[in-house]
Simulated assay, not measured.
Amino acid sequence: MVNELHLLTEEPQSPTMDIVAIHGLNGHYSETFTDKSWYGHGTLWLKDLLPKKIPGCRVMSFEYDASINSMSVANVRDAARSLLELLRDKREDTIYSDVPIVIVAHSLGGIVIKQALVLAEDDYPNMANCTKGIVFFGTPHRGADAAQWALMAEKIGHAVLRTSRSAFVKILEKNSEGLYKISEDFRPMAANYAIVSFYEEYAFNILGKVIVDKDSAIMGLPHEQKMMLSGTHTSMVRFSSSDKQFDAVWKRIKRAAAGVPRRGQDQFDISHGPVAPSS
């Protein structure tokens, strides 16, 4: 599999923002974000719904080999650098070079973008400066049980867990040194970005519990917006045209393009009430 940044929408004449989606473990650049329909074509909300709500947005989705049984030796750092290089190629010397960037990240994708922004601070300053917000969907900032990842992947992709697991599985485990380092490196710069964290409501059917619990899915930042979505770890990032929850998602993506709210602006945590503005 070749790492690729797929353009999902037509390029607008007057761009307002770049929205970049990143799938998670055993995910796919389009299927992860597609609501399956019994009647034929599913809804890829990144392409089918988002441009109607946010005029002028250009939407891309990053494809990388995050298969649980991949023989690739690539790790999170490799994926992060590939993303930065591909995104720079899409933006450099174009009308998009300075438009805001908002990242939409599911699960492992959130770890990839945190690593990418750590790298961007020194090596890709334009990318770091233009990135205004990150919308996390079920990202395990503090990890989750390895057995849960394996069972979920087996259920979704009919994968059989081999003894030699991919580097991506290992970094998602609780008490992973790699995960801890990425989190520690990213935390000082997190105040530069609007942060939205969605966490899952429903247990994964074969486990009887959620894949990423609320405590792991939330970073605990003063300016972070937190909200529960009615879905499992996989369904929480899929929306049909009639899904009322999509309103909450697209509005937060649009707001994130403005960056961190200025002091004095209202911030609201839907699960805990008002949150003090960040300093």
Rank of each mutant, 00 (worst) to 15 (best):
E4M: 09
E4Q: 08
T9V: 10
S14K: 12
M17L: 14
I19Y: 06
V20H: 00
H23K: 13
L25P: 00
N26Q: 14
H28V: 02
T32G: 06
T34Y: 10
K36I: 09
K36M: 10
Y39E: 13
G40Q: 07
L44I: 07
K47D: 05
K52E: 03
P55F: 12
C57L: 06
R58A: 15
F62H: 04
Y64S: 04
Y64A: 03
Y64N: 04
D65W: 13
D65L: 14
A66T: 15
A66M: 07
I68F: 03
N69I: 15
N69D: 11
M71K: 08
V76Q: 04
A80K: 08
R81T: 15
S82D: 13
L83A: 04
K90W: 07
D93G: 04
D93L: 08
T94M: 05
I95S: 02
S97A: 14
V99C: 12
P100L: 14
I101P: 00
H106V: 15
S107Y: 08
S107I: 08
L108F: 10
G110M: 12
K114W: 08
L117E: 00
L119E: 06
D122H: 14
D123G: 03
D123A: 15
P125W: 05
N129R: 08
C130G: 04
T131P: 00
K132P: 00
G133V: 06
G133K: 01
G133D: 03
I134G: 00
V135H: 02
F137I: 03
T139C: 08
P140L: 04
R142C: 14
D145C: 05
A146Q: 15
A146C: 07
W149C: 02
L151T: 11
E154R: 14
R162L: 13
F168T: 05
K170Q: 13
L172K: 12
E173M: 09
K174Q: 10
S176H: 04
L179T: 03
L179E: 03
Y180K: 15
D185R: 07
F186R: 12
R187I: 14
P188L: 05
P188M: 13
A190R: 04
A191G: 10
A191K: 10
N192D: 09
N192Q: 11
Y193K: 10
Y193W: 13
V196L: 06
S197K: 09
E200A: 14
E200P: 00
E201F: 09
Y202M: 08
F204W: 13
I206M: 10
L207M: 09
G208N: 11
K209V: 12
V212T: 11
D213I: 09
K214G: 01
K214M: 15
D215V: 06
M219H: 03
E224G: 06
K226N: 14
K226T: 15
M227P: 00
M227Q: 08
M227S: 07
S230W: 05
S230A: 13
G231N: 04
T232W: 07
M236E: 03
V237A: 12
S240F: 15
S242P: 00
F246H: 01
D247I: 15
W250K: 03
W250F: 15
I253G: 01
K254A: 06
R255P: 00
R255H: 04
A256P: 01
A257D: 02
A257T: 07
A258Y: 08
A258T: 10
A258S: 10
G259Q: 05
V260Y: 02
G264D: 06
F268L: 12
D269S: 12
D269Q: 10
S279W: 03
S279Y: 05
